[in-house]
Amino acid sequence: LRRPAFRSPPPHPSGERPPRIPAERMPAHVAVIMDGNGRWAQRHGLPRHEGHRAGAAAVRDVVHGALEIGLRHLTLYAFSTENWKRDPEETSAILDLLRQETRAYPFEDLDVRMRWHGRADNLPQDLVDLLDMRERSTRDRAGLTVTTCVNYGGRDEIARTAAALARRARSGRLDPDLIGEQDFAEHLPRPDMPDVDLLWRTGNEQRTSNFLPWQAAYAELHFTPDHWPDVDRRDLWRAITEYTRRQRRHGAAGPAPHEPATAPREGA
C-alpha cells in the first residue's frame, strides 16, 4: 500500500532552522518533563489551568521541531499518578485539555504516530477511548512517535512488571532464579519503548520525578529554567545539540586525557 503524503511541519515564526546533527550523534528517544505550567499561570495572574492550556501550544511547536530535526521518539509527561493529589479543579482541567487535544489532533497531516502510556484506572472512560482511538488511527505512521504519559508513575510501572513476571513464574513458564534484565524489559507495559537517550526537564527543577526510571537508567539529564509554556522547538534543538557534546560511556572508560572526545561544530 502507498503511504499517505504528509506535509512538512510549519516553520518557526522566527524562520530559524534546526541544526544539522550527524545521524550517529542524534538521540533516538527524548523524554520531557513539561514542568512549570501552573507557576507560569500564577506569574501572569491567571488560574493554574490556563498554564496547562498555554503549555499545549508549546507541545505542538516542540513536536513540529522534533519532526524537523529528525527525532524518532518523543515522550511527554502529561499527567502523573501523583497529580491526583492536586486540586480537583486543576486535575479536571488537565484531563479536559488532554481530551480536547486528542480529539482535535493538530498533527493529522503530519507523519506522527501517537501512543499513550499509563494506567486506565481512574481515568474517565471517554478519555481512555479517545487515546486508544488515536493510537489505532496513527499506528501505521513511520515518522515521529509521540508517546503521552497519562496517569503514569515509574514505580507503579515497575510494580506492574514485577506482578506480570510473578504470574508467569507461578504458571511454570518462567524460572524465577533465571529472571534477568531482558525478561523484565519484555514484561514492561510498553516493552517496545526504546531506552531514553536524553531526559529534559523544564521549570528550574532538577529531579526526574518518577518518570521512566527503567527506560531512563542511562539517560543524559538536561535541566532548563524556563517554564514549559515559554518553551518552543528551539529549546528542543538546543537540548539535542547539548546532548551531542556529552560522552556516552555506559560504564566504559572514557578517552585518555590527551585524547579529548570531539563534538560536532555548531551547525556542522
Rank of each mutant, 00 (worst) to 15 (best):
R2Y: 11
T161H: 13
Y152W: 01
S14A: 09
R7V: 12
R60P: 03
R173L: 12
V32I: 15
E181N: 10
H73K: 05
E108G: 10
S137M: 02
R134G: 00
P9W: 03
W237I: 01
H49C: 11
T208S: 13
A23K: 14
V128S: 08
A120N: 01
V128T: 09
M26G: 13
M114P: 00
A263I: 05
P106M: 03
M114A: 12
P229M: 07
W237F: 06
N204V: 00
P88L: 07
E259H: 15
L95T: 01
E89P: 01
V62K: 03
Y152P: 02
E89H: 12
R249G: 12
N210T: 08
E157S: 12
R113N: 01
H222Y: 15
L198N: 12
G154F: 07
V112C: 04
R53S: 10
P13M: 08
R207D: 08
I240A: 10
D230R: 13
W237M: 05
L98D: 01
G203L: 03
A268I: 01
L130H: 10
A58K: 03
P27N: 12
F184D: 08
N210E: 07
A253L: 15
G36D: 09
D232H: 09
P124L: 01
L130E: 14
Q100D: 09
L212E: 05
L123Y: 00
